[in-house]
Design a protein around this nucleic acid. Structure first.
Ligand SMILES: [Mn+2]
Ligand SMILES: [Mn+2]
Ligand SMILES: [Zn+2]
Ligand SMILES: [Zn+2]
Lengths: 157, 157
DNA sequence: ATTAAAATTGTAATCAATACAGTTTATGTG
DNA sequence: CACATAAACTGTATTGATTACAATTTTAAT
């Protein structure tokens, strides 16, 4: 289980240190040496649902890891993506985001407030007979529109 | 109807000039002044199924329009997108492509040869109850994998 | 302790996209 | 036609995310 930092109880803190071990063994399974930076970057990715950019990850982690380099964040994320334990989201041009949730889900982006929300879809439901003979390895589904709050705030544009 | 330049017959040439008029009235409907550059850029977008990048469009058209500026291609495409007569494809990060086909369809990209192929899907089929109350304006669906040819060429990796 | 390999760092280079100011073209008026 | 105004277009400068790369630090083994 992953923790929302702002809602952690004292009793749960004792389990926090095991996150590193869980992530470490996950990385080892992919033949990735579980360095401190890699563990912290993956931990950040998994504990947030925000689909952060490189800059957001760097800015958050450099406070606790002052020696961290942005190049390391780039290198690490590229490594994760190549190993299929994270994926790139190109929801918007010039806004590369990352997601450690490899389950089949799509992303809705509100064009007004910018919030990105996960949603599930049944994978076979998007199948099409236009791709007979094609081997599909990954599916990225992006929706754009208005979230309920933004619809309420601007009823007539 | 749009023409594949390499398969045009003499009888069809007489209809070619009407493309400009058809596109011109389409632009006027969107309150876009149908300048020569805009018509040619939209004509290029519609006549190709290749989902070209800005650079591909510029390189192709500058041969016939030597005064064309790449900035104009950028400006024109942004204008088309804002007017909803073209759309941006962010199939891959750092590879912005454009599509004048506004019908509901997805894009498959072969990770080996790079070909981009359209495919249809029934729009309601991707609906999900995770987005109740959300207003969905646009859907972008990207698949990645191997096309039949590339599967045949490299059976064991 | 010594060494080699791997990971990390910081800076330079790249390149798509935008900003912007100057120029050209289109359109309307007398 | 001459003139004026607005729109479209052009070319260059700037921005900013990403990568390239060489130097440094860390890790792990001998
Ligand atoms: Mn997600
Ligand atoms: Mn298409
Ligand atoms: Zn919103
Ligand atoms: Zn292929």
């Amino acid at each position: 289980m992953w923790y929302n930092v702002s809602s952690i109880t004292d009793k749960e803190v004792i389990n926090m240190s095991s996150n590193a071990e869980i992530i470490g063994s996950m990385l080892l399974k992919e033949n990735i040496k579980p360095s401190y930076a890699r563990i912290r970057i993956m931990e950040y990715l998994m504990s947030r649902k925000s689909h952060p950019t490189v800059d957001e990850i760097y800015t958050a982690l450099v406070k606790e890891i002052p020696t961290l380099s942005k190049t390391t964040v780039y290198n690490t994320l590229n490594l994760f993506v190549k190993s299929n334990i994270a994926r790139v989201l190109t929801i918007e041009e010039n806004e590369t985001r990352y997601d450690a949730d490899m389950s089949c889900h799509g992303h809705f982006k509100c064009e007004s407030c910018g919030v990105v929300r996960d949603f599930c879809f049944r994978s076979p439901a998007i199948d099409t007979n236009d791709l007979d003979g094609f081997l599909v390895r990954e599916k990225n589904v992006y929706y754009y529109g208005l979230c309920p709050e933004c619809q309420a705030n601007k009823p007539a544009n």
